[in-house]
Simulated scan of single mutants.
Amino acid sequence: MLPNFLGVQELDAQQRSKVYDELSSASHPDFDFFFMVGLSAIIATFGLLLNNVAVIIGAMLVAPLLSPVLSLSLGAIYGDFYLFARALEAEVKGILLAIIVATMLTLLAPGAESTYEILIRTSPTPFDLIVALAAGAAGAYAFSKERLSATLPGIAIATAVLPPLATIGIGLGLHRFDIAGGAILLFLANLIAIVVASAIIFWLLGFGPRFSKIQEAETMNRLRISFILLILISVPLVYLMVNALNEEALRTTVEETLNSQILGMDDTTITSIHYEEIDGVLHVEATILTPEPLTSSDSVRFQNALENVLKRPVAFELDVVRLTVYNVEAEPS
């Protein structure tokens, strides 16, 4: 058996049987399951399109997709192919249904466009993986302890299985494959992390094979494979996080450098800054609103300041919008 370093108290045979029966029943791919998945997908899709956090949370509470994920873990630990296969069928069909519903609703919704709640689900980081690991462990433990059942709604929110699926559908409906791709990565990270964490908890609670060394070895191999998948999925998450941090640092540096060049210029503001890297050269375009006459020498001054700070070649374009200021003095009373 896996060493129980956490001191988790194992369940007795009756308790384990009850958990097995409840998870097996909750993971059955029947009409009730798919009906709830469809309804939760509708709620989540409109919550995301409306940028409404409360509605999205409601969708998480309605969605029944967490139970099949926990059943996958339990089936893998038990070596129960029937439970594993049935849970996999329910999860895969539920995933496809949620994506199809979200795609269709997005295609039918007039003026549908990306919102903040959609975009934040397209750039997963290792922190999302850590949250999913903790939520998966909490879900398995709470499902196994009847007195902790009141925490399950909160765990359903923390695991956030459904919103990434709705985001995938929205991305497909908007023909924004960058949105769909980022959401796929987030969903896979959540799924793998929940399976790994819940499998460990189920093992510690005594669900693993007890008498067969062969079965125990097979279960350990399945856990190793899960850990490998967890490591593999963490690689792109780390890459995305590093890129995001570098992008934020670059944005801040460019803004601060340009703003430093207009100090002392009254009524002058930088209204917009756009930049992109092309063939190793950072192309920066800035729009300045000012009453002062700026010339090409000012543009060169901005460019030199950026190159000195960034230590890289910069192509700079300055768009000047002339501002006329009228001062009207108050008449004496």
Rank of each mutant, 00 (worst) to 15 (best):
D266Y: 06
W203G: 03
S272R: 02
S144M: 13
A193E: 06
I228Q: 12
N243C: 07
G171Q: 00
T271D: 04
S144C: 12
V196G: 07
S234M: 15
V254R: 02
V242A: 14
P209L: 13
A142C: 13
G173T: 03
A199K: 05
L258C: 03
L172A: 03
F177M: 01
S272L: 02
I184C: 02
S212I: 08
E276M: 02
T269C: 00
R251E: 06
P153Q: 11
L188V: 12
I194F: 08
Y141G: 06
I231H: 13
N221Y: 13
I192Y: 05
E276Y: 01
F227S: 05
F227T: 07
D279I: 00
D266M: 08
I184G: 01
I157D: 04
A193W: 04
S260M: 11
R210D: 10
L237F: 12
G173A: 05
A249T: 12
Q215D: 15
G182E: 00
L148K: 09
T159V: 14
R222Q: 13
T167G: 03
H283I: 01
M220V: 14
L165M: 08
T159D: 09
A217Q: 07
T271Q: 04
M265G: 00
V238M: 15
P163Q: 10
L172K: 02
A183K: 00
T269E: 02
E218M: 13
L185K: 00
I157E: 07
M220T: 14
M241V: 12
N246D: 11
I157Y: 11
R251G: 08
P153M: 12
A140K: 08
I225V: 13
F177Y: 09
I155G: 03
M265T: 05
M241T: 12
N190L: 10
V196C: 04
T167H: 01
T271G: 07
F211C: 13
S198F: 12
E216W: 01
F202D: 05
A249Y: 12
S198E: 13
I214R: 11
L232K: 08
E255K: 14
I225R: 15
G154H: 12
